[in-house]
Design a protein around this nucleic acid. Structure first.
Lengths: 327, 327
DNA sequence: ATCGCGTCTGATATCGATACCAACGGCGGT
DNA sequence: ACCGCCGTTGGTATCGATATCAGACGCGAT
């Protein structure tokens, strides 16, 4: 930067201002500076700026994985909003592990982000303490939480799962098998399973452990889970999978085995991924605003960083039960 | 850090060493320091360290989008290898735009990464100049390039597309429709189309513009492209789509219209996404090592940063034609 | 006892941009 | 003519960790 200042015949402060707040520099000098910048191919050193100003123009987000398109959608939307406001989004993958999340939070904080986004509201005690004491805006996304660390944006996974299960009961299904995610520290999974159980119990159907199968989130796991459930309880008349990926695995396996859907076996999913409506039969599922979650989280952060606080700390964006031909 | 030093009764340098290269500090003092760190919840400020040492422990990668699982796979693999070596991966999305790529490269360089990964070998002149003059290790992934800026890891998209087209001709298909991506500045798309045309011409089949349809990468675009192609040329007997997403869109649309695959219309894709083998009929496609690309790119970078250069600048990882029932 | 070497520790300068404050010139108001 | 304000500019200290070098200490060899 000193080189640019010399080249333009001004002080370093003026160069700094010309780049960060051009309106404070006279047009004439600003032109000289931009010329010098171009001529010398000058690129400022963010580390120095961050160190002095405590502003990194960076927001950190932690998701379980980006391979799953549902998180990718949210990230993409969040990234766009932040970019427009002059922030960079840095992404970390916890791989569904709370310890990994904690480690990521630690290294992220070391990089001085201006806000942190985490997925879910379940964290290690140390992670929660780190987030709280960081003094940064923190947004917990995906599953709303009544008492967030700071702010929370998402839907009630409990309500959504509850609504779907109630719907299936209304349709007359009685032996509803449930395929859920592995749930070490995953509150979405926990809440979805709780919603299923609550709706069953309200419907007067006893809870049966045999009807529940847990699986990682991939097509094959869904297929395998169906096989296992049917082996245990051949009288199952409906499957509710806590993720469309699993539900699609179930559908594909049912097709393979010639099981008629929905006549012999109804199938419902959760997420409404792009493929859901294109399956045969099209999949009944829960749709929720993945992009809006990202946008809203980013909006909250940007407002916060611009001093415009907001009363509302918990934003529940709502879901929609999309009824298609698989049920 | 000064606080930690005081608490532990040592100098700041010793604290710094205890954290960065513990073997240089006696066990006794190291213990005092780690205690102090824990007690004060000290987290070092990366910006300061980066500024002084010129080491950010960060690698930047730019991909078109992370919503597409094929890029997510590569990123995930790359991220893992880098993490193990003590680096953070920071991801940027160019959204298939060369100008956006250039802008990202600029802001990334400002953050002092230790290496940069970009997708493809097509860049704006300014972007190429930035990369070259940055003096950083640069890896261009996905599509190998004979004269890379620095290093290149991927497959020959031309060869892969060429091989598939040749295979389709051998199977006896003669009116091969081609659905490709939009190709402003996308060398993968360009090379795949070129491979298709080269194989046709070698097979003595004249090139027909009517047989080519370009589309964005989503299921609906694939479906729509099929409709348009069939409207123009009802005698098409085979579709080669430059991406499985498009091919799956074609398959779904064919199923919907009751077009028999492969009897009336063969379909081939490119990428071998998880769903390809689970479609009905399972999709013939090109499989290539998406994870290995990420790992290899990361390996090259790590070796480079540890001073262990490598002769080979272009790593071609090879592809595989996976023949299934759709052709 | 002395020397030399290796191991460990600390004081200080430094990385590059920016916060903070001072200074300067021009201009309108009294 | 003088004052004071605003818009603009530059000098200097500073953010926090680390490179660099010097010093302290222990231990074996002579």
């Amino acid at each position: 930067m000193a080189d640019v200042a010399r080249e333009a015949g001004v002080g370093t402060m003026t160069v700094s201002r010309a780049l960060r707040s051009p309106e404070q520099v006279s047009e004439k000098i600003r032109a000289r500076i931009t010329d010098a910048v171009r001529k010398l191919n000058y690129i400022p050193n963010t580390a120095a700026g961050t160190l002095r100003s405590n502003r990194s123009h960076m927001v950190a987000a932690i998701v379980p994985t980006i391979s799953h398109s549902i998180f990718a959608d949210t990230i993409e939307a969040m990234s766009e909003v932040l970019q427009r406001a002059g922030f960079h989004l840095v992404i970390g993958q916890s791989n569904y592990g709370l310890d990994q999340e904690e480690a990521l939070i630690r290294t992220f904080i070391a990089r001085q982000p201006e806000a942190i986004v985490v997925t879910g509201y379940t964290h290690t005690p140390a992670a929660a303490a780190l987030l709280k004491s960081s003094g940064l805006p923190v947004v917990e996304i995906w599953n709303t939480c009544s008492s967030p660390i700071d702010a929370s944006v998402g839907i009630s996974n409990f309500d959504a799962s509850h609504a779907m299960t109630r719907f299936l009961l209304q349709r007359g299904y009685r032996r509803i098998g449930y395929i859920g995610g592995l749930k070490r520290g995953n509150d979405r999974t926990v809440q979805r399973e709780a919603g299923y159980r609550a709706a069953l119990s309200e419907g007067g159907i006893p809870y049966e452990r045999e009807l529940i199968q847990r699986a990682p989130f991939d097509y094959d796991a869904g297929a395998k889970a169906l096989v296992q459930l049917l082996a245990r309880r051949p009288d199952i008349d409906c499957i509710f999978a806590a993720s469309d990926i699993l539900a699609i695995g179930v559908l594909l396996e049912a097709n393979r085995q010639g099981i008629a859907v929905p006549e012999r076996l109804a199938v419902a999913g959760f997420d409404d991924v792009g493929l859901a409506e294109r399956m045969s039969p099209p999949l009944t599922t829960i749709r929720f605003p993945r992009k809006a979650i990202g946008q809203m989280a980013a909006d909250l952060i940007v407002e916060r960083l611009q001093g415009r606080a907001r009363e509302q700390r918990v934003v529940e964006l709502g879901f929609e039960l999309v009824e298609r031909q698989s049920t």
